[in-house]
Amino acid sequence: MELALRLSSDAPHYLSWGWLSVSVPNLIVIGAMLALFVLALVLPFPGNRRKTGDRS
């Protein structure tokens, strides 16, 4: 809990590449969104078993 409070109250660390500057927390969120997007494309959907003769 103390660690969470300290992390949320401290100023975030920023990464910079030329004109682009992004905080580490924002970069983590963007990475998580991209990761979940890729997983949503590749992971099988439960109950989506193909039947014989199904064209999909």
């Binding site: 997983l39 949503a40 992971l43 959907f45």
Partner: peptide
């Protein structure tokens, strides 16, 4: 729904 909707990408 059409069969292609059975995908995680349609959940969001």
């Amino acid at each position: 729904q059409p069969s292609y909707v059975a995908s995680w990408i349609y959940v969001f």
